[in-house]
């Protein structure tokens, strides 16, 4: 039986792990290789590495950091940040990515998702969507939440799925870094509309918040601050999920 995944996210800037709240006020949260190796030893199911300054600095993800993190782990690595072309994806895979997350570039050029899937298969292509509450429902934002896009995240995810995305990384900007729990309403809406797996992101807090995300329909739940700051251990998160009847990898 397919297990629900617990994922650790490393937001990277200047070769260091950083973390903010609602995408703002980034602070240093350690060395990415040490963090990745530690999470791997604790039983993490996957690592997501996001180069959070790449798009706004107009460059691709830091390949040396990707390679160093990848060499330190034996679980899958998804990489995002500044991915604009099929060649960018090839370079990230050659550095050590197993999957690639595309956010701002897919909004500007949706055909990139199709071109990526035709070469690397849809299972390699993650559509990353940053969403927040708007007066009438939700809207999305790109460029690390700095550019507002008046578009419904679920409709956009559905379009991305049809183009070639094989997974959705769905981040709540409102919940990012707040430890208030995942946006289960947003997750449930995505689950009702989509066929592809959903990675819930933004708001991981109490132990039970992970099982809440899974029960709302997430296939994986991602966290950063609570792991970086040692608030939660990966083992206790999985134990809490198992107690609620969620299948996790032992």
């Amino acid at each position: 039986m397919l297990a629900k995944r617990v994922i650790a996210c490393l937001d990277i800037a200047g070769g260091r792990v950083v973390k903010g709240v609602n995408f703002r006020g980034l602070r240093d949260a350690g060395d990415p290789v040490d963090a990745a190796r530690g999470y791997c030893d604790e039983g993490i199911d996957e690592i997501v590495l996001l180069d959070v300054s790449a798009t706004n600095e107009g460059r691709a993800s830091a390949l040396d950091t990707v390679a160093a993190v990848s060499a330190a782990i034996d679980v899958p690595l998804a990489v995002g940040g500044g991915v604009r072309s099929v060649e960018d994806i090839a370079r990230l895979l050659d550095a050590g990515a197993d999957k690639v997350a595309i956010n701002s570039a897919a909004v500007a050029d949706p055909g990139l998702l199709a071109r990526a899937a035709e070469r690397f298969g849809r299972q390699c292509v993650v559509i990353s969507i940053d969403a927040r509450h708007a007066p009438n429902g939700y809207e999305i934002a790109t460029h690390s939440a700095q550019v507002r896009v008046p578009r419904d995240p679920i409709a956009w995810a559905l379009q991305a799925q049809e183009l070639g995305a094989g997974e959705l990384l769905l981040t709540s900007i409102d919940r990012d870094g707040t430890q208030r729990g995942f946006d289960t309403e947003l997750i449930a809406a995505a689950r009702a509309a989509l066929r592809i797996p959903i990675v819930a992101s933004g708001g991981a807090g109490a132990l039970d918040s992970f099982a809440d995300a899974f029960e709302a329909g997430a296939d994986a739940a991602l966290a950063a601050s609570v792991f970086h700051d040692g608030v939660l251990r990966i083992g206790e998160v999985k134990d809490a999920c198992a107690r609620r009847g969620v299948t996790v990898r032992a």
Binding site: V75, C124, E167, R195, I196
Partner: peptide, 24 residues
């Protein structure tokens, strides 16, 4: 629910099994 993405059991005929990562 596709792709099949994540950790699942690889089961051998002798009844033994292990977790492995799938993406397909």
């Amino acid at each position: 629910r596709l792709p099949h993405m994540g950790w699942n059991r690889v089961e051998r005929s002798d009844g033994s099994a292990d977790w492995a990562y799938f993406a397909h």
